[in-house]
Design a protein around this nucleic acid. Structure first.
Lengths: 207, 207
DNA sequence: GTCTATATTTGGATAGAC
DNA sequence: GTCTATCCAAATATAGAC
């Protein structure tokens, strides 16, 4: 049986530390020895709980991506339920859940940076894993964008979504690192950030 | 004395291959063994010519960044010489040299992806190297942007430049990988790309 | 300048005791 | 589930012949 509080179990500590170190040093750059040392668990624990480094990486994604995508799809569905929804609404459905997660949970900010890394990495296996398990989310959003931008032909839309996805990924990854004035609460900070990103991306898509 | 044609010397072959593999697998992910095998030179050649892997990485940057930054600063100076220059002009001065380099030279496309990686990596030593040697270029551009966007306070401008820099870095990195119709020449393709990026970024900065 | 051979370190994975 | 000890492969770096 597991430890009484699964948040502090060996397994969870490994996942949390791995997330931080993968964000900081990349998947190849962070070694299992660094991870287990920082998590104060034994080196062998990684293989016991996850089987391999690659499986650990996948589990780092799974742990947060399931929830993030549920929120994103729910937000998208809510937006699309209204017949008069705008480009800004769809962008908001994409951005806000990520920003919320990055500020709510302790490791959330690190995870968004891990996501950005996955985006930048061109590793075949990692891309296949993400595409197989989470590709449908991006496809749903792409369809929603296409409906709202009928004046753009396919090539144009492709270009712009590519840039927007890159911009948003980068922006959200850096979000946790931007200093904020101490008199601005977490909540309004997130609100401001989301608005900036949405306006920026919408302007780029419409230009 | 060097080989007759320095482009095919052992040293240059290493640099070219390293650029490609660092772009593809990251700095930690590409090993010196992979590099030397692909370059068809001996493993020991890297240490002979560069001293260490880290020095090789720095040399990969130096080889193209000096030229790129010269072009960028020249373009910026030309733009600023005209009193009525616009935001689009400054953005163009930043983007166009990178796109030109990415299409002109054989390894140029790979190098832009290496640049994007450096941007994403938070490795302290690499960031310090780039900031020490090339930080003045980004500072000059930031100043030019600040003059053209007086309505934005410092915090606003910081936010937006951060997003724009991320967007452009990503976009330029992916640029070489986007398929183009066969009937569109390299030149007009680059022209289109530059215009898209400039318009997108300008819209975001003004929004 | 380039090669072979090797030293040294680091990293991923496993076996077996507890 | 966790630990110690260890194996094996891979990686960086160097020594010394040519």
């Amino acid at each position: 049986m597991r430890s009484a509080n699964p948040n502090f179990s060996t397994r969870e500590r490994i996942l949390g530390v791995a997330e931080t170190l993968f964000a900081r040093h990349g998947f190849a750059g962070a070694s299992l020895r660094q991870v287990t040392a920082a998590a104060k668990v034994n080196l062998a624990a990684v293989n016991y709980h996850f089987g391999s480094k690659e499986s650990l990486i996948e589990e780092v994604f799974r742990r947060r991506l399931d929830e993030l995508n549920r929120h994103r799809l729910a937000a998208l569905a809510a937006v699309q339920a209204r017949a008069d929804h705008t480009l800004e609404d769809v962008l908001d459905a994409f951005i806000r859940p990520a920003l919320e997660q990055s500020m709510d949970s302790a490791g959330g900010a690190a995870f968004v940076r891990v996501l950005a890394r996955a985006y930048a990495e061109h590793d075949e296996r990692l891309r296949k894993f993400l595409s197989d398990n989470y590709g449908h989310v991006l496809r749903d959003f792409a369809t929603a964008f296409a409906r709202l931008l009928p004046q753009l032909d396919k090539e144009e839309l492709y270009w712009r979504l590519d840039i927007v996805a890159g911009a948003l990924t980068y922006a959200m990854a850096d979000f946790g690192m931007i200093k904020r004035k101490s008199d601005v609460s977490e909540h309004s900070h997130r609100e401001q950030a989301a608005q900036h990103l949405v306006r920026f991306a919408a302007a780029g898509l419409r230009a």
